[in-house]
Write a protein that binds this DNA or RNA. Structure first.
Lengths: 185, 185
DNA sequence: GCTGTCATGTAACAGGTTACATGATTCG
DNA sequence: CGAATCATGTAACCTGTTACATGACAGC
């Protein structure tokens, strides 16, 4: 039950419509959380019912009205409480890892191709995140002390995104290297 | 829909009862996949219906009978097909990361404690995995060429477990260090 | 005219979690 | 005698995914 809270974080940064939230979730927050618009609409409706957010219909020219959601004082309290409660350690869940482990029960060459495709995807995403980091440094350096606490948090979460993609690139490379060494023997 | 396939991998390594599988999932395979016994029983029943596994009741002395599941030729084909199909890149989903990002909307000191607790958990798990790796090396080194392909896969997935825990330890340490530096300023 | 974007939603289903239930045996 | 372990399961619920639906405007 964390999508609610992820939405609260995003809405406290900036009130938004359902679709705007969905777009944010494929960017920054999306380093570590993902949600489709259908899911977001459903949860937003519940949050409105529970009084965590208020909804304001904003008319627009040349496009449909949008419903802008903003966090209420109750929502702020709910978020603050959640932030202070311990989070149990979450295990990574990876289909690819299961495939790598079971490789000998199928066509290994085909599986190595699957791994290569995933490696390429992670490499692209890593490059993208590194671009973002570069832009961030160009904006702020060398006056790092001027960062607000929240901007520092955003930066550090981006660092996490970079690190997780480095994990994938390094690990998948290790896997491929070990098996390619065998094939040529 | 990957629990089925994870179970097939585990059952090809060694036929097992539901509870035995649940235990394995909190160990080796569990580096990257987790499942409770309730879920495993439900999925095993479906796999039996679909003819992917056969069930043999094995009487035991002094404890309840167990139902040992073994993979059928059909199950083997299903597994091999699955192994050769591409896996889309899976985003990491982390509640802790959302909290770190939203830290400024709550009590930051409390959140840093939450992060510290998670760091300690990951450190313990990393130490455990490193022990396993050490044991593995002691068993096999320096005759690494004698490893079967499957044993190599098992080792490389353990390497992934080590790498992911290193990711957590390094990243959470970076986060704490950056914020602790602020507090003492 | 077709495709894409903005914007909101419904419905059905699949997957995963939590709580509860049963019954025997072993260990302190 | 009580607690823990082995072993299997049911039921209710929550979360997340996929497919489908609507309607208007913008750009090629």
């Amino acid at each position: 039950m964390a999508l609610e809270h992820a939405l609260l974080v995003s809405l406290r940064e900036q009130p938004a419509s359902g679709l705007e939230l969905a777009k944010r979730f494929s960017r920054s927050i999306g380093y570590f959380w993902h949600a489709t618009h259908q899911q977001i609409y459903r949860v937003l409706a519940r949050m409105d019912d529970d009084g965590w957010v208020t909804v304001t219909e904003v008319p627009q020219t040349g496009r449909p009205d949008k419903k802008v959601h903003a966090v209420t004082p109750l929502g702020e309290r709910v978020l603050a409480d959640w932030l202070a409660t311990p989070t149990p350690m979450e295990p990574l869940r990876s289909e690819l890892a299961v495939k790598m482990r079971g490789a000998s029960y199928g066509d290994r060459a085909a599986l190595l191709d699957v791994v290569r495709a995933n490696l390429a995807d992670h490499q692209i995403r890593l490059d993208h995140y590194r671009q973002l980091e570069k832009r961030h440094r160009a904006d702020r350096d060398p006056a790092r002390e001027t960062l607000t606490d929240h901007a520092l948090d955003q930066y550090l979460v981006l660092r996490g995104g970079i690190r997780i993609e480095e994990f994938w690139v390094d690990w998948l490379t290790e896997y491929l290297t070990a098996h390619e060494a065998r094939l040529t023997r």
